[in-house]
C-alpha cells in the first residue's frame, strides 16, 4: 500500500486503477455482503467549510436527487458514515472538522470537495489555510474543481460506492487507526498542544 508521502496521492490513484492490487479476491462472502450494504446506504454529514457548501444542497433537490443512491443527510456525526469537507480549511475550521471526524463511528469515509482540499487551490499562498487535507485526515475520495458541479459530486459518490463495494483500497478509517501517529504529528504541527485529546487522554478523563 502507498505510504503517505509527498507522492502518496498519486500512488494511491495508481493502486485504484490497478486490478492486481485489489483486495477484493481475498475477502469472504460475508465481508462482501457487508460491504455491499455499506455502499448502498450512506448517511452524510456535510461540513460546510467554504464555498463548496453551496454546491451540496442542490444534490438533495429534485433536479439531482441523490437519495436514489441511498445517500441522505444526517444532523449529527454519531450517525454519519461520510464526512464531506467542502472547500478550504482554515486552522480553526480544521480543528472542528477533526473533532467531528473523530466523533463519527466506524466505518467512516471522507470526501474532499474542491481543489482547496487537494492542494490549497486559490488559497495556495494563504497563511491560515491548510494545503493538503490528507495530511490531517484520511481522504477516501477527492473531487477536484473550483467549484465542482453537483454532477461531479454525484460521480464522486458513485465512485466511492464502487470503491467500497469492490474493496478497491483500504478504507481511510483503517489508515487513520493504524497510522494515527502520522496524522497526529501533522495535526500537532499546526495546533500545538491544543489539538484534540488522544484516546488515552479521553479514557483518563473518564475515570476521574
Amino acid at each position: 500500500m502507498p505510504e503517505n508521502t509527498q507522492e502518496g496521492f498519486i500512488d494511491q490513484q495508481k493502486v485504484l486503477d490497478n486490478e492486481e492490487y485489489s483486495i477484493k479476491n481475498t475477502q469472504s462472502i460475508i465481508q462482501k455482503a457487508v460491504d455491499w450494504f455499506r455502499a448502498r446506504s450512506m448517511f452524510v454529514l456535510a461540513y460546510g467549510t467554504g464555498c463548496g457548501a453551496i454546491e451540496m444542497p442542490p444534490i438533495f433537490t429534485s433536479r439531482y436527487d441523490i437519495e436514489r443512491l441511498g445517500v441522505v443527510g444526517v444532523a449529527t456525526p454519531r450517525q454519519a458514515d461520510i464526512l464531506i469537507v467542502s472547500g478550504y480549511c482554515s486552522y480553526k475550521t480544521l480543528k472542528r472538522v477533526i473533532r467531528s471526524y473523530e466523533q463519527m463511528n466506524e466505518p467512516k469515509y471522507v470526501i474532499g470537495l474542491g481543489s482547496c482540499t487537494i492542494n490549497g487551490g486559490m488559497y495556495w499562498d494563504s497563511y491560515n489555510t491548510i494545503k493538503k487535507l490528507d495530511e490531517y485526515l484520511p481522504v477516501d475520495m477527492y473531487i477536484n474543481g473550483c467549484m465542482p458541479r453537483p454532477e461531479a459530486l454525484i460521480e464522486g459518490f458513485v465512485k466511492l460506492q464502487d470503491n467500497i463495494r469492490n474493496a478497491k483500497s483500504e478504507a481511510g478509517y483503517i489508515q487513520y487507526r493504524e497510522n494515527n501517529a502520522f496524522y497526529r504529528a501533522n495535526q500537532e504541527k499546526i495546533f500545538g498542544k491544543n489539538t484534540t485529546p488522544t484516546f488515552e487522554e479521553n479514557f483518563a478523563g473518564m475515570n476521574q
Binding site: V34, R40, E67, G70, Q79, N105, P107
Partner: peptide, 29 residues
C-alpha cells in the same frame, strides 16, 4: 419523493439503512 418530483430511493432502502446501522460500531458510552 414523487410528491417532490424526484425518483426517490428503492423500496428496500430502509432495510439497507437498518442492516448497515446494525453493522456499525458503537463508540459512545
Amino acid at each position: 419523493a414523487r410528491v417532490h418530483g424526484r425518483f426517490g430511493p428503492s423500496l428496500a432502502q430502509s432495510f439497507f439503512d437498518s442492516i448497515k446501522l446494525f453493522l456499525k460500531e458503537n463508540s459512545t458510552n
